[in-house]
Write a protein that binds this DNA or RNA. Sequence first.
DNA 1: ATCTGTTTTAAACAAGTGTTTAATATTTGT
DNA 2: ACAAATATTAAACACTTGTTTAAAACAGAT
Lengths: 213, 213
Amino acid sequence: MFNFAAPKARMNQNAEEKIKQAALRVFIQKGSANCSSREIAREAGMNVALVNYYFRSKSKLFALIFETVMQDFLKSMVQVFSSDLPIREKIKILIEREFEFLGQHPDIPNFVLNELARNPEAMQGILPVLNMVNESGVFDEARKLQERGDMRQMDIVQITILIMSNCQYPFMAQPLMKVIHGVSNETYKEHLTAHKTHAVNMVLGYLFPNDQL
Amino acid sequence: MFNFAAPKARMNQNAEEKIKQAALRVFIQKGSANCSSREIAREAGMNVALVNYYFRSKSKLFALIFETVMQDFLKSMVQVFSSDLPIREKIKILIEREFEFLGQHPDIPNFVLNELARNPEAMQGILPVLNMVNESGVFDEARKLQERGDMRQMDIVQITILIMSNCQYPFMAQPLMKVIHGVSNETYKEHLTAHKTHAVNMVLGYLFPNDQL
DNA sequence: ATCTGTTTTAAACAAGTGTTTAATATTTGT
DNA sequence: ACAAATATTAAACACTTGTTTAAAACAGAT
């Protein structure tokens, strides 16, 4: 008979899943090129050969991990955009959610941008996620608002840059800022939460110059 | 007698300098861990052993390169800060110079932040450069302006974050933005130059809310 | 218990890593 | 011209890399 049931686990937990989680941690912390299959296996508490037994190759495993990271990375954005809140609320909540997400995953922006800049193959793992963004219709909505004169005339590309700059860079620059200003981990985190308010106010104030605060 | 003159070059150019320049290119493009000594030697058109002959080890060579990159990275900032222009002009020129510098070295921010986040040894190569920043007296000046109420009350750390976010991230996110919005290299560069104006206006408008434009 | 398919392991593979060595080539000082 | 110092090379070192292989351990069904 065929075995339709899921493969039985011999370990205390599913080995495949354990490797995936270990790979997620190691890849994000060290990058795709600066870590070894053996390190991932060690982090998962398993044999090296199991990595390729379940995922064929290190690069295939990385492609899988990278796609899931990109989905997490953009998922909350798309959720906010797909809602029917007024545009100012959308942007406010978007920035606040981004700060919340990055507070828990501070090293994901560096991971994503670095892989995209240096690992050409990573580009293809992004294509499925791209549809998520395009199908959300965010960009179309912003264009309509601009046609009504309700928003500063500004290319959508630059609006995206504007918002993401003020959300992601503060987390990416943590090591640099800590050493430049000589502050501790804790006080920098306080700066980050305080910075969220500045980001919201500044971005909204610039995108909607006719509003009175 | 001792030989006070610089070592004579047998190649068409100084071999040591050629290796340095090759290392600069390779390190910035691939990172300290994702490139080999042989690749640097090949890029310089020399033998592998010469790398260690002149620089003792790969990590010593990297420390040297990283420090010079950090100096270039912060030099223009310090120059502007050390001038005696009015504060609004200082910030304006600072942002414009940053955009100009990054237009010619777009991959330096990713390189610097990535090394600082993942290569703990890189931290020490930054200490000499730190003094440059501190001795410029920028931060003290900003504090005085705030005491006079001439500037938004805001921690210096966050002001630094604010300015650098809107300068560096647009260049770091180039691969991501290109694929998200499906634009070419050339049009993205046009977006970048257009974005410079937005960055200046937005940052100045937020830091000096009492100004009328 | 035996058979069957799946999971796990240790060992090996070729290729690439940073670094060293010992010999060669070139320049320099006399 | 010769000798000392410097520059350059090919080869080797021990080690790590990703991947494969063949054997072992295990589970479930009969």
